[in-house]
Design a protein around this nucleic acid. Structure first.
Lengths: 352, 352
DNA sequence: GCGGTTCAGTGAACCGCTTCAGTGAAGCGG
DNA sequence: CCGCTTCACTGAAGCGGTTCACTGAACCGC
């Protein structure tokens, strides 16, 4: 998780303090030690075109001197950094927090690492951050897009290995896409609510510009028509406090919706909060459904009905796709992740 | 948040794919455009010892060519990266997730960025990750230490600007320390519980090696003796699922504790989970207190009594300290952050 | 008109590693 | 023994900036 600004005035940050250039051994020192050229050492350290015996000698000398390769010099010379950029639409979203941390933890078991940044639901920020990551020469860029339709993705795809998570990026030649089958979850949710007799449904969706569930919105509307459900769609921040505020005003309207369908668990938490303030009982007066299944959702009273996108499954798919794209230079097809319904206690039959 | 392995075999990650060396303009191109030397351009772009008029000319040319400085080359040449390393003891901890994301978001408003990594409560991992960050030439290293006593911090302090969050690092010449006054919170918690008549208290503390609250443990024991409270201290993972497991076994013992004091909200969530499984009512049968005040804690039933360490306050203090250390090369004294008690509904009088 | 500053700008070394073209020696088949 | 390939390794040119020592011109007071 990380980084604030993309570029900023390049002058700042270059102040007084001279870095402690503690003389760390370089490849040249090893060359001297072993009587080889620095080129040979470079090859040997990477196990390239050098006989095993020499490799051993070099590695031994390296260990003896406490040599550790300088990733910066290496990146400059080779054009590769071993770093994967992860650009999240909003790290306020608890699902994304978990995803980012899981991804970072397991990223390609050892050799690469992840640089995780937060677009904070802002499309402009998203563009500048992705530029920032490209400047940092990330070998691949994993994104949960704020705005999948942005033209700049095409650019990014040209400059690096681009992997989309959540929504596909229609305009870009992505190396892989791990897409959520939002439609399935949304359909299930609406049918569930309708089955319980709810016809006035409040839909809270992250935004305004956060599009993580954009395709879901279309589906929601169509399905609502089919099922004869009246929808009140509100966009709101994907975080407890902001969502609560929106929910408070939405729940004060007449006729009051009898169910709320939230396209993120964090938002559902906000609804719980608002309901408590307003003296609205869940699920008697208001049924609530979420989206994500954050670990805490089970614990609420009543426990939250929601749809789980298994973080581990998604992370594994991403890691595998990135690996394949980087190693074989082949793009893979789209992976569809299906939601796992978690029907719990926050939904009950509509009164009337 | 990020990165998996510190070094790993350097050979891997260097595979087939040749990086798209799209010819981006360099400083040399600007030099040609303007008829200046590349040195002059370098100075001008950074606003150094060059008259305003020339600066303008250079910047104009840079814009025209779409020039963007290469941070890697810059880092290699200058020894400074503009990146701050943030090493969290455990990003499973919800407080740390929030802290990391806040820190990343506001880090030094523009010019620097944060590289956030997760030690996953493992002291060895912590050492190797901090080496990794130093290799990446971070300008400063902010750490929530797993093991404040580790000798390697002294080393890190020598190599970069080191800022400790949570616990002080006794052995290291840190540039700043933002320390939590755990003692205050712990004392308040124990007194509160004792005041309600609890004498059998289960203490769940993150670990086993996670020392974020180590000083608190000592205080807890002393105070317990004073107050004549029997303590049962258990270390457990700082995450809902792991904590629940420990809690389940601890709550099955006889005599059953009448109160649980958890040194992280995530752990308290685990206790809620376990209590529900075991049919133990909160707060009638078991009082629970947490530590952190995660946004969700208010929402649980009953709402969790806990101690808030305001993420924004801590993040702001850290940002300010880092800035000062980097710009003026002066270390600042220790900042003590005091907890804000949030007494809510998860504590009640002990029966009997 | 002269020594001394300041100013604007230059040339080249350098950061530490990668990589390409090439070299001398050994090994090989005939 | 010759020509050819293979092997083990080297020299040097980058990668794209930063920085240091220095220069020539303008300017200063006297």
């Amino acid at each position: 998780m990380s980084t604030v600004s993309p570029t900023g005035s390049p002058s700042a940050g270059y102040a007084a303090r001279v870095p402690q250039r503690r003389k760390r051994p370089t490849i040249k020192d090893i060359a001297e030690e072993t009587g080889l050229s620095s080129a040979a050492v470079s090859y040997a350290l990477r196990g390239l075109q050098v006989p095993p015996e020499t490799q051993r000698r070099v590695r031994e000398a390296a260990d003896r001197l406490g040599y550790e390769a300088d990733p910066i010099a290496r990146a400059l010379a080779s054009g590769r950094t071993g770093t994967i950029g992860v650009l999240c639409s909003s790290l306020e979203d608890l699902w994304q927090q978990g995803f980012a941390s899981t991804l970072g933890r397991r990223f390609l078991a050892g050799t690469r690492n992840a640089l995780i940044v937060d677009a904070a639901a802002d499309p402009e920020r998203e563009v500048s951050l992705s530029k920032y990551l490209l400047d940092q020469r990330v070998d691949a860029l994993v994104t949960i897009p704020v705005d999948p339709a942005s033209p700049h993705w095409a650019d990014a795809a040209r400059r690096t290995v681009l992997v989309a998570v959540g929504d596909p990026l229609p305009g870009a030649a992505t190396a892989a896409e791990v897409v959520f089958d939002n439609g399935l979850a949304v359909a299930d949710a609406l049918k569930t609510l309708r089955g319980e007799g709810h016809t006035e449904v409040l839909v809270l969706t992250p935004g305004p510009k956060l599009r993580r569930h954009r395709p879901a919105e279309k589906i929601v509307r169509e399905l609502a028509r089919e099922l004869d459900v009246t929808l009140r769609v509100r966009t709101c921040p994907n975080a407890l406090a902001g969502a609560a505020e929106v929910a408070r005003s939405a729940l004060a309207e007449q006729p009051r919706p009898t169910a709320a369908f939230c396209l993120a668990d964090s938002i559902a938490y906000g609804v719980y909060d608002a309901a408590r303030d307003l003296g609205i009982g869940i699920p008697e007066d208001l049924s609530v459904m979420g989206f994500d299944d954050h670990p805490v959702s089970r614990l609420l009273t009543p426990s939250l009905s929601t749809y789980r996108w298994d973080v581990d499954i998604v992370a594994e798919a991403v890691v595998e796709r990135v690996g394949k794209a980087l190693d074989t230079n082949r793009r893979s097809k789209r992976t569809l992740v299906t939601p796992q319904p978690r029907h719990r206690d926050s939904v009950s039959a509509a009164r009337n």
